[in-house]
Design a protein around this nucleic acid. Structure first.
Lengths: 99, 99
DNA sequence: TATACATATTGAATATTAATCATATGATAG
DNA sequence: CTATCATATGATTAATATTCAATATGTATA
């Protein structure tokens, strides 16, 4: 299958773990351990998914001693989530019932 | 893995065939046969992907005799592609080199 | 109603993705 | 410099998605 920056962009957002990370970072930067606690997921899972978010630069990283604080690059994420919200509420309410 | 309207939304856009369909429909409605000719893909592939786009209501359908004309629901698609374009051009130029 | 054409659906093979385990690297305190 | 905590990486396995071939359905027309 063909990968382009566009498919990578959307596939990165098409995962519940990564969306959960994004929503968690909305309230401010968090390090990996904090994210694992909030989201109750394995450290390796968090790290793998952070890497994918970083790859698209949806998030930024700041090192502080042994900790790595991740934060949102809100520039794109905020408007795109707003648009998505609007669309989902208008058109995709019943989407999870597979038909 | 967990599916939500949001992950379905983004995963639907994270596929080159569906993005190609979307770009093709930008210039106006097309039926299935026309799409297969423009995109040089099998009819079944086109139909499968149209169904997924329809499920999220990214596209609309109009029947005309034996033909089914598909067209874009531009309301969400246009601004989201604009945002994505901007982000990709700014941040994701070198994205396809896996690192 | 029989035939042709347009499109959809089903099922199977293959490719892709996600989560996890095991392990490696990196930073700091002692 | 070594022990410890924080995080990253690589490999494997399980779940999902994609494509295609085969087939079904739907529409129109002779």
């Amino acid at each position: 299958m063909i990968e382009t920056p566009y498919t990578i962009f959307f596939r990165t957002l098409g995962n519940q773990t990564r969306l959960a990370i994004i929503y968690t970072l909305k309230s401010g930067e968090k390090n990996v351990t904090e994210l694992t606690k909030v989201l109750k997921l394995k450290q390796t899972t968090i790290s793998h998914n952070l890497r994918r978010l970083l790859r698209c630069q949806f998030i930024k990283i700041r090192q502080d001693g042994p900790f790595r604080y991740y934060s949102l690059n809100k520039e794109t994420i905020e408007p795109i989530l707003k648009l998505t919200d609007k669309h989902v509420n208008k058109y995709c309410k019943n989407l999870c019932k597979k038909k």
